[in-house]
């Protein structure tokens, strides 16, 4: 047999990770988003070490104390206190934990469910596919927050129920995305060649096809992370999410509503926290899409 062939191709081509980082880095916003995201993550993990006080501890002498740079503020309550005298900074720091909890749980539930259903729809005979997709369309036809509200109303208001409701509402996006990629991958030759090697249906679905559909799903996951935070905050604001005294950002906003004119800081800081986190994640999601979607690559 010929010998010969492959002298060349010794040299390493850039690895996938390196290439990914190259494209990701191109997008300045995404990199900033990533750093902010990592920052929030760090704060959430080390909340007990970073927070000056317990988030539920009430300092009765310091009700509605303004942030330190304002008249009457002090550095011991850097961002001021709320109507019950709780330190706002500590509550925000602990709030990051809840936001992360919400984001992670929602994404995990929605992706596992969505991917499984999407895979089934992609491989199913036409009638089953149609049933699944129409069902998803029905869910998508409702305004997402409204549907989540109804679900929470049925399940009872609590953070966990809110999370489950949001996961259910977000799920159809994953189903559609997975199904679309599955259908385009399914007819490629490598799938046929796995079939010829004798691979069963489950193996085809999870081992052969799924890994090749992950890129858009990862992007969607990043985006729904921020959606989840936003929706849980909205539910909290409506009193259907985390219950007081949980230091959840949306709930904090809701509690502070009546003081909006007297004490701007009790509404502004939780609002800013939500805004910055959501913005950072969205920016990062954009970068992820650029880096993972080969069609947008420039070379």
């Amino acid at each position: 047999m010929s010998d010969a062939t492959l002298e060349a191709v010794q040299v390493e081509r850039p690895g996938r990770l390196k290439e990914f980082w190259y494209y990701f880095r191109e997008n300045r916003g995404a990199v900033i988003g990533l750093y902010v995201f990592l920052g929030v993550f760090f704060v959430a993990v080390f909340a007990p070490l970073l927070a000056p006080y317990d988030p539920t501890e009430q300092f009765r002498d310091h009700l509605l104390q303004p942030p330190f740079w304002q008249e009457g503020g002090s550095l011991s309550y850097a961002l001021g206190t709320d109507a019950l005298g709780r330190d706002l900074l500590s509550r925000l720091i602990y709030g990051a934990r809840f936001s992360f909890f919400v984001g992670v749980v929602v994404v995990v539930i929605a992706t596992t469910g969505g991917i499984t259903i999407g895979l089934i729809a992609g491989f199913a005979p036409r009638w089953l596919d149609t049933i699944i997709m129409r069902l998803m369309d029905v869910i998508l036809a409702f305004p997402s927050l409204l549907l989540a509200l109804v679900l929470v109303a049925v399940l009872g208001p609590s953070l966990l129920n809110a999370v489950i409701a949001i996961a259910i509402v977000l799920q159809p996006h994953y189903v559609r995305l997975t199904r679309a990629s599955v259908i385009s991958e399914r007819h490629k030759d490598y799938v046929t060649s796995a079939k010829v090697a004798g691979a069963g249906r489950l193996r085809l679905m999870f081992v052969t096809v799924l890994p090749n559909c992950l890129a858009p799903i990862i992007v969607q996951a990043a985006l729904s992370f921020s959606n989840a935070i936003l929706d849980v905050a909205a539910l909290g604001f409506l009193g259907m999410g985390a219950q007081p005294p949980t230091p959840e950002w949306g709930t904090m906003l809701a509690e502070a509503r009546e003081f909006i004119l007297r004490a701007w800081w009790v509404v502004t800081f939780p609002g800013l926290a939500i805004l910055i986190t959501v913005l950072a994640i969205n920016l990062m999601g954009d970068g992820l899409r650029d880096a993972l979607d080969p069609k947008l690559k420039r070379s």
């Binding site: 490629k188 030759d189 490598y190 046929t192 060649s193 796995a194 010829v196 090697a197 004798g198 691979a199 069963g200 193996r203 052969t208 890994p211 090749n212």
Partner: peptide
């Protein structure tokens, strides 16, 4: 067994060369 025309489409991009070769044995 079969070999397809397009060598870019007929190998699973997420499997290493070794896995690609071993898969038929794992299954059969």
């Amino acid at each position: 067994q079969i070999v397809f025309q397009d060598p870019f489409g007929s190998l699973n991009p997420r499997q290493r060369c070794g896995q690609i070769l071993e898969e038929p044995l794992i299954i059969n």
